[in-house]
Design a binder for these strands. Structure first.
Lengths: 176, 176
DNA sequence: ATTCCGACATGATGGATATCATATGGGGTT
DNA sequence: AACCCCATATGATATCCATCATGTCGGAAT
């Protein structure tokens, strides 16, 4: 996810930054797509309201991630963007985005490369999440990423879709 | 995943097709990247051999999917491509791919659009796979996709990472 | 120093699901 | 018609993990 950052940076070069508080909606379903957004800090969830009143989180964008890129090729949004943690967001008019891609092929090609890496990374994460056992998921993650920096096991648990206690138990088992 | 197909088709227009039998390796780790591949039929797994002798499946490419796109921006492959079910594969020299993107901006832009959709779709699948209960995953999938065509519940089970019996049990529960 | 907080750690328990097994029914095939 | 394959379906059992609870430790802030 980080790898894509630099490409978006190039596109968002000079775009103004706005701060949204927790709970704010950056856009809502059915709203016309006029701009694109890059999350600079905090986190923003894309949510789709469900029949039972709850919301389905489609994704959670954090620092360096674009918001609802796919919507840039649509007329209206198909989900809500709700701020989870107070977020700074760069805003760029849709037309500027399209013009940049059209006029600066090196940026377009860079975006393709970044997307290619993102797609592959997501595929491997999907394969890990499809595994049944904590030990398999951990094996796979460690094999691909190596041990995480000190103090980051919790986020590993998050990424591989496992509760922190389950992860620590698995780690303890391996030490003995 | 299907949505990306047409864009690759345009790039692979006229590329020759080769058939690989089950078990064959289309490329191996460390091999230099000389071509790109589009799976026309059958299935091909990207695998990374693990310390314990087994292999970690990074992804499984089926009809219409490109193989290891990210490698097109690298010098060597970082995983093996092993045929799961006899596969027809279109092969295009790496240089032709890059030249196509460079010389035909409309194809490059189309690829960006396709990737944007793929990335979003994968993100929602990841969120579904992170859910604990079968009923939540099914709710989410149905809300986004609607009921599947007759005879395809099994593949829904596959997509949402649940065993077929568990899915049928959940469906039975809902009928009553 | 003391407080506070978050990561790390581990035990007990209940519940959800994978797995194995077995059965049925419909669509093709010979 | 007899056969086979596969999706559908459901029961019994074992396993795994989420959850809750509780405790330790180290670093940051006061």
């Amino acid at each position: 996810m980080i790898s894509i950052m630099s490409e978006w940076q190039a596109i968002f070069d000079g775009a103004p930054v706005t701060t949204f508080d927790t709970g704010a909606a950056i856009f809502r379903r059915e709203d016309p797509v006029r701009s694109m957004y890059l999350v600079r800090s905090g986190s923003v969830a894309l949510e789709r309201p469900l029949a039972d009143g709850t919301a389905l989180a489609l994704s959670v964008a954090r620092s360096g991630m674009a918001l609802a890129e796919a919507s840039l090729f649509a007329d209206t949004y198909h989900c809500d963007a709700v701020v989870r943690e107070t977020a700074e967001v760069s805003i760029l008019p849709k037309a500027v985005f399209h013009a940049t891609l059209r006029d600066r092929p090196e940026i377009a090609l860079g975006l393709i490369e970044a997307y290619a890496h993102t797609v592959q990374a997501q595929r491997t994460r999907i394969e890990i999440l499809r595994m049944r056992k904590v030990s398999s998921r951990l094996d796979a993650w460690l094999d691909l990423n190596g041990p995480p920096p000190e103090g980051h096991w919790k986020s590993v648990a998050e990424v591989i879709g496992v509760s922190p206690p389950a992860l620590y138990r698995e780690l303890a088992k391996r030490r003995s």
